[in-house]
Design a protein around this nucleic acid. Structure first.
Lengths: 190, 190
DNA sequence: GATCATACTTACTAGTAAGTAAGTTGTCAA
DNA sequence: TTGACAACTTACTTACTAGTAAGTATGATC
């Protein structure tokens, strides 16, 4: 048979891709099963409910982000380089046709999401904001960044711009994210 | 019977509200018909397809925005006041429980939208960007705004931040939009 | 008073959604 | 060789989706 967890991981991969492309209410188990050439019930075997599948997607992404933040190469980076790397996360999402970042996709469907997914979504956004706030705070203290007000407020602003731009790309032009990123960096210069 | 266009307008009102709350794939004709205490087919009488209803929502919004830009009181406003008024559009969306701005909602569902709705969505976003670009350009020339680079790039940045923040609010806190607006204004100061 | 359009309702259709119960098959361990 | 389990399939259910065809009440017009 197939290797252990192979189908399960393929399901999460595909479901995440569909979520980023079409939103939580825009994909079904049939989308996944037909793409993987298995039956509808096979998906239900691995993820009895769509809610469990949704939670699995977010939890895996949270783990990936945590791993990213803890990666050895991060500790040797300058604050500016870290911000660059963070912006690259959003650029990477757009490499796949029609994708948007996960936070943006989940926020949009928030009101129609089951409660457990809502909780995971809020935690996911909080992960990003906490990391970003610390980067901006430490970067300003070190003299690498310059901005007024609280680091948290600036973090909200940066994340909002990144998410907003990654979404705007769909109805406009893919260069718009780069425009926003240039402006974000500009807004942090002395 | 009911006054002319009353039901039709009520349908657009409700459909728009549902679209902003739940996304295009998150509401059905049944949501509308049961709320208005009419039958499913009554909605189809006014809007034969969901696509036509979707297009009607966007077109009405575009007309409302055009009317807003041409309102007599606008011409006497300072550039800063105009920007304030523009930001208020986004604040107003959030007054209704769980709403997000229309542009954000449409961009999110873009890939699953019928073609006519995609075209209207792109035009809707373009309306906003063109107005904003002109405001920023004229404002900088008059010495009221200060920023580097092209007005268009700054316009993309401002709209991205507004849309992103209006969406982030769902998974976080309603104060986050105000944070972003404060930062936007700060980024345009000398 | 007949005709006609408007604004519906009743009663359906075909398709798709998530989800389930029961049976099948390959693999591995005792 | 025999269980036992993982990983499915087959065959279904219930609920909801957009959309339609045909009929009806109401008011305005000729």
């Amino acid at each position: 048979m197939t290797p252990i967890n192979d189908t399960k991981n393929q399901i999460i991969d595909l479901a995440e891709s569909l979520l980023l492309q079409r939103g939580y209410n825009g994909f079904s188990y049939t989308h996944i099963s037909s793409a993987l050439h298995v039956k509808n019930a096979a998906i239900h075997y691995h993820f009895p409910t769509k809610t469990e599948l949704g939670v699995a997607i977010i939890q895996r992404s949270r783990q990936q982000f945590e791993k990213w933040t803890l990666h050895p190469r991060m500790s040797s980076m300058s604050f500016a380089k870290k911000l660059d790397a963070f912006c690259d996360i959003f650029r990477d999402f757009l490499k796949f046709e029609g994708h948007v970042c996960l936070g943006s996709a989940l926020e949009h469907d928030f009101n129609t999401l089951p409660e457990t997914m809502q909780q995971e979504t809020s935690a996911f956004i909080a992960d990003f904001l906490i990391w970003l706030e610390k980067l901006l705070k430490d970067g300003r203290e070190a003299g690498d960044f310059a901005f007024f007000g609280k680091p948290k407020e600036q973090a909200v602003f940066v994340l909002a711009a990144l998410q907003g731009a990654s979404q705007m790309v769909r109805a406009t032009d893919t260069t718009y994210l780069d425009m926003a990123i240039r402006r974000i960096k500009q807004s942090l210069k002395q």
